[in-house]
Protein backbone atom coordinates (compact mmCIF):
# COMPACT_ATOMS: atom_id res chain seq x y z
CA UNK A 1 0.00 0.00 0.00
CA UNK A 2 2.49 2.67 -1.09
CA UNK A 3 1.44 6.18 -0.25
CA UNK A 4 -1.25 5.12 2.21
CA UNK A 5 -1.09 7.09 5.48
CA UNK A 6 0.44 5.34 8.48
CA UNK A 7 -1.38 5.23 11.81
CA UNK A 8 -0.34 7.73 14.43
CA UNK A 9 -1.14 5.31 17.26
CA UNK A 10 -2.18 1.70 17.81
CA UNK A 11 -4.81 1.11 20.45
CA UNK A 12 -4.57 -2.13 22.45
CA UNK A 13 -7.71 -3.06 24.41
CA UNK A 14 -6.04 -4.79 27.36
CA UNK A 15 -9.28 -6.27 28.64
CA UNK A 16 -9.85 -7.95 25.28
CA UNK A 17 -6.23 -8.99 24.61
CA UNK A 18 -5.81 -12.70 25.39
CA UNK A 19 -2.10 -12.89 24.62
CA UNK A 20 -2.43 -15.19 21.60
CA UNK A 21 0.67 -13.66 20.00
CA UNK A 22 -0.96 -13.32 16.57
CA UNK A 23 0.06 -9.64 16.37
CA UNK A 24 3.67 -10.57 17.10
CA UNK A 25 3.47 -13.25 14.42
CA UNK A 26 2.53 -10.70 11.76
CA UNK A 27 4.32 -7.57 13.06
CA UNK A 28 7.15 -8.70 15.32
CA UNK A 29 8.93 -5.34 15.23
CA UNK A 30 5.82 -3.47 16.33
CA UNK A 31 4.34 -5.65 19.08
CA UNK A 32 5.64 -7.53 22.08
CA UNK A 33 4.10 -9.07 25.19
CA UNK A 34 4.46 -7.51 28.63
CA UNK A 35 4.75 -9.44 31.90
CA UNK A 36 1.01 -10.17 31.85
CA UNK A 37 1.18 -11.57 28.30
CA UNK A 38 -0.70 -8.54 26.98
CA UNK A 39 0.24 -6.91 23.68
CA UNK A 40 2.23 -3.69 23.86
CA UNK A 41 3.46 -1.48 21.03
CA UNK A 42 7.24 -1.27 21.03
CA UNK A 43 7.72 0.62 17.75
CA UNK A 44 4.83 2.05 15.79
CA UNK A 45 7.04 2.29 12.70
CA UNK A 46 8.49 -1.17 13.14
CA UNK A 47 6.64 -2.89 10.31
CA UNK A 48 4.95 -2.23 6.98
CA UNK A 49 1.38 -1.00 6.88
CA UNK A 50 0.41 -4.33 5.34
CA UNK A 51 1.89 -6.18 8.33
CA UNK A 52 -0.06 -3.93 10.71
CA UNK A 53 -3.31 -4.67 8.88
CA UNK A 54 -2.54 -8.40 9.11
CA UNK A 55 -1.94 -8.09 12.86
CA UNK A 56 -5.22 -6.23 13.40
CA UNK A 57 -7.16 -8.69 11.25
CA UNK A 58 -5.57 -11.75 12.85
CA UNK A 59 -6.20 -10.65 16.44
CA UNK A 60 -8.62 -13.33 17.71
CA UNK A 61 -10.48 -10.96 20.02
CA UNK A 62 -10.45 -7.77 17.95
CA UNK A 63 -8.33 -6.06 20.59
CA UNK A 64 -6.24 -3.93 18.19
CA UNK A 65 -7.16 -0.74 16.36
CA UNK A 66 -5.04 1.49 14.16
CA UNK A 67 -5.61 5.14 15.07
CA UNK A 68 -5.14 7.97 12.57
CA UNK A 69 -4.54 11.55 13.70
CA UNK A 70 -7.42 12.89 11.66
CA UNK A 71 -9.80 10.83 13.80
CA UNK A 72 -8.93 13.21 16.64
CA UNK A 73 -8.28 10.55 19.28
Amino acid sequence: MPGAPRPTAIHVDRAQCMGSGMCIMYAANTFAHDDETKAVVIDIDGDSLEALHNAVEACPTGALALVYESEGV
Binding site: M18, G19, S20, G21, I24, H33, T37
Partner: peptide, 15 residues
Protein backbone atom coordinates in the same frame (compact mmCIF):
# COMPACT_ATOMS: atom_id res chain seq x y z
CA UNK B 1 -12.43 -19.62 28.87
CA UNK B 2 -10.48 -16.41 29.35
CA UNK B 3 -9.45 -17.36 32.91
CA UNK B 4 -8.32 -20.88 32.06
CA UNK B 5 -6.62 -19.97 28.79
CA UNK B 6 -4.64 -17.26 30.57
CA UNK B 7 -3.03 -19.96 32.74
CA UNK B 8 -1.38 -21.72 29.80
CA UNK B 9 -1.13 -18.93 27.22
CA UNK B 10 2.18 -17.54 28.59
CA UNK B 11 3.85 -20.95 28.10
CA UNK B 12 2.77 -21.01 24.44
CA UNK B 13 3.50 -17.44 23.30
CA UNK B 14 5.94 -16.50 20.54
CA UNK B 15 8.51 -15.45 23.12
Amino acid sequence: HRRYRALVQPSFGPA
